[in-house]
Design a protein around this nucleic acid. Structure first.
Lengths: 228, 228
DNA sequence: CAAATAGTCAATATATTTCTTGAATATGAA
DNA sequence: TTCATATTCAAGAAATATATTGACTATTTG
């Protein structure tokens, strides 16, 4: 079948339909809880109960949010026994989250403000992406993945060491004052890396954070390292 | 000021604040009319009345939508006399629109369905982006920008000729059966290129469409040509 | 089989978003 | 100054989205 000519009224109806369908994707992402859920499962797949706990939502509510996301194809489910593991649908979803953050950072002062209100003048950190490659290559630098071990295992930056706060506190990690520590976590709005940097600095180590997350790294077309 | 430690309750409040602020951007884009408005002014700046006409909205309603977009920093206004010219805030906004479309195309069957319902099996066209560079370089190919002249003048693909439907119909453009015509317009959900291709094919020309728009081209970091 | 667990569904009250209407403002022209 | 034009503002009705509650289904365990 070929393209069919339309009068002006048909054209308007067509456009209305297209944009209505199209708008469902931003609508799915336009809820604070769903955004948080998305960023969580972008780190690694999770069950409904996991997500409900981490987001402080009721299980029913969380399940409903997940279904909204699934209906738009933003997340997929895999059922194993009575569990439902949700994961992001693909790298395009990560790219979408990334470009939302880019716009937020460039345009929306309120996000930055909300962060400042709580964090004070957060450590500006080493800039971004271009540098990360150099950091990975630099043997004087130790990259610290400050996320929970499960997320580290699901994919981390090359050469990064898993170093969640408890792990640092336990003293099991051998740290050196000669090294330069660069911490990252789930992204610029996550505080794991801040906590780790604060902890390390108090003890006299050279520590900085970067805002880049493994999700961003992958969205930019780079490979993540995995365990096992 | 440095990073300040937070208890679990403070952390939750912090996250709620961050994601609430963050979600305002997708919320602004989550309305069909605002999406259409954004895609229109991504082509070239427009006045409120222009946009109201093109989207078939009342002027007051359109103005309100524009203010929602402006409040998130997605669009900017420039006032000249009694006119208000709205334009997209920058290339990040274009990238956001692009990644929404990517997700839509990959995941959301309904958009594709809405398109199919109205267009029939639309001409699949030559694939995408990678090819466009080759097309631009190929002297046997004539790139047709089928958008209105004002949009063409605001920025078009290198070597493209402005060829809105009326212009083709008027016969003022010298066309050759030896050429291969490749048409584009505002993007995959716009029908200008379809109309041009249909018109040319009826008359025995070799014509195809591509879905790529000048906006995408720019979002990918390429330069647009401008008149004047 | 019954009980426990993980998740989903359905109904409803609440909150938010959207469109319409008509008035208000602000600029430029006569 | 007066008028017309382009846009914005404000209030309210209608439509939509959200969180809560409690019931429901399906799978595993005893």
């Amino acid at each position: 079948m070929k393209f069919r000519k339309m009068g002006p009224v048909a054209k308007r109806r067509f456009k209305d339909d297209v944009y209505a369908a199209f708008a469902r994707i931003p609508a799915a992402v336009a809820n604070p809880h769903r955004l948080e859920i998305l960023e969580l499962i972008a780190q690694r797949p999770r069950t409904v109960a996991d997500l409900a706990f981490e987001t402080a939502l009721s299980i029913a509510n969380c399940s409903q949010h997940l279904q909204v996301l699934a209906k738009c194809g933003l997340v997929t489910v895999e059922r194993r026994g009575t569990f439902a593991f949700y994961r992001t649908a693909g790298v395009n979803v990560h790219r979408l989250l990334r470009s939302l953050r880019d716009v937020a950072e460039e345009n929306d002062l309120e996000v930055a403000l909300a962060v400042k209100n709580h964090l004070g003048d957060r450590d500006a950190g080493i800039s971004e992406f271009e540098l990360v490659r150099a950091l990975i290559a630099d043997p004087a630098v130790a990259l610290l993945d400050t996320r929970p071990t499960e997320e580290y295992e699901a994919g981390h930056l090359p050469r990064a060491i898993n170093a969640p706060l408890e792990s640092l506190k336990s003293g099991k990690l051998a740290l050196s004052k000669a090294k330069r520590y660069v911490a990252y976590c789930r992204g610029p709005y996550c505080i794991f890396a801040d906590e780790a940097v604060a902890y390390l600095r108090e003890r006299g180590f050279d520590a900085t954070r970067i805002g880049l997350s493994p999700m961003d790294w992958e969205a930019a077309g780079e490979e993540l390292s995995r365990v096992g």
